[in-house]
Design a protein around this nucleic acid. Structure first.
Lengths: 258, 258
DNA sequence: TTTGTATTCCGTAAATTTTACGGAATATTT
DNA sequence: AAATATTCCGTAAAATTTACGGAATACAAA
């Protein structure tokens, strides 16, 4: 959606294609090189940073909409994506927005009862991706984007700081119950790599040896015979996820601590 | 909403008062006397059992709407009520319903594009109450109700069996991380009572002694000096929740097993 | 070839938590 | 006083979690 024609059509006729009152706002966590970031877009007019949201098509299943929006924004398919909460309490979520303001900011003429100004509840999803593999796309409303370190999130639009906080809390709770890493690490990875991943996401240190013991004893990873030469020091062995156990743990959940 | 006038107004003009495309469908778990049940209403016309749902007012915060709906249906305020999932994937949730059918079943004349026939996503909440303290109210659409044992849920409308299953799974997972019982047990209760409560909810046996030890060691309950005379046998001591620890555990979560 | 550097690899003992389990105590009824 | 029904208590074994340091090794530089 970038040409003026498309944008106009979206604003004027979007309600025919999309459900009003609802948006999907994904918190996209990007991990790479021991850093955990989230993807934010700069919304023009509103002049602030916000989540890369989208709308649900009228005959589109909810989870499909979430995947589509993520795909449109990042080019990624088939990743860890999970619904975590609906936000509909904050004053921002109760307010209807003004058409005049919109016209001033975007230079588009719209009617007062345009669907975009109605009260909108936000369905929060979060995803976990390798941000070095993402090619972010912007559009008419979002001209710029940036990956922000989670320790350094700027003030966001509406109640989206709350959304991000809750997403992070959910992710950190979840990692105790479900495995993570399948699409974030190379097919074959070292213990250090997966260890760093978990430490970074949880934001705290984990004993290297006990951590590895735990994952192995849960049957989630297995040691390969291969090693990887990466520098002037002993070469680490490579590990692989046990797909079956991994899938199973995703579904069933695991009860444990690290 | 019971007079014909009110119902007509709701059907015709409800969209002015309520958000379309969204409903709140609470799964109300009722516990009493070692039985765990859920509240279902018999929906006339649709001729089946379903959850006692409701709609969100246009300027009403989401969680307030959930509490209101519960209050309207059960008379209860201030109880354990929690959002757990949005349902928008099942074919039922994509379908729009037909006006003709509606007219046939309810004898109300409605237009084809009435708001009630549009695709509706369901925001799932679950609550936990003492069903002996509930006075259920019905309305024009729901003439009858019944508490159904969770092991014996009938086929429900739409995708609501899935909703109920997920609610139960969430409850059972949650009880490992957050305390339960504050509004389900008397102010002062015996170990047997709280033990039965947990066994019933989890649907499995828990060692009596270890269970009590755990709750005490977590600081969630404390033993009182009083006993309660209840039969031709030794009288049990009474216990009370430690409110502070309880509230704290609700917020922070506990990591443990039983 | 040797030496230095950076990183990986491994295992055990102590502490804590969880599990398993049975017999004595006691309030009431007969 | 005896019978009945239920509560109360504690310990030992098993399992899990935690804490922790020194030898091995791949490469680079001398």
């Amino acid at each position: 959606m970038n040409s003026e024609e498309e944008v106009n059509d979206f604003v004027k006729n979007g309600h025919q294609q999309y459900l009003p009152h609802l948006s999907i706002d994904p918190v996209i966590f990007g991990y790479h090189d021991q850093q955990l970031k989230i993807l934010l877009h700069k919304w023009i007019g509103l002049d602030g940073w916000g989540l890369p949201g989208g709308f649900i098509r009228r005959r589109e299943p909810l989870s499909q909409a979430a995947h589509r929006i993520l795909q449109e924004r990042t080019g990624l398919e088939d990743l860890f994506l999970q619904q975590f909460h609906v936000f509909g309490d904050s004053p921002y979520r109760l307010q209807e927005r003004s058409a005049r303001e919109f016209t001033e900011k975007y230079g588009l003429v719209v009617e007062k009862d345009n669907w975009l100004f109605e009260r909108t509840l936000s369905i929060g999803y979060f995803a976990l991706v390798d941000y070095s593999k993402v090619s972010v796309r912007t559009d008419f409303f979002t001209t710029d984007y940036r990956w922000w370190d989670i320790s350094d999130i700027p003030p966001l639009l509406f109640d989206q700081n709350e959304v991000v906080d809750k997403a992070l809390a959910t992710l950190r709770l979840q990692i105790y119950h479900q495995p993570i890493g399948l699409n974030l690490l190379p097919e074959k990875f070292t213990l250090s790599e997966i260890h760093s991943l978990y430490e970074t996401i949880l934001g705290k240190e984990l004993d290297q040896r006990n951590f590895a013991k735990k994952l192995v004893s849960l049957g989630l990873i297995k040691k390969l015979a291969e090693q990887r030469a990466i520098g002037p020091h002993r070469s680490p062995y490579l590990y692989q996820f046990e797909k079956d156990a991994y899938e199973n743990a995703l579904k069933q959940g695991i009860v444990h601590t690290y």
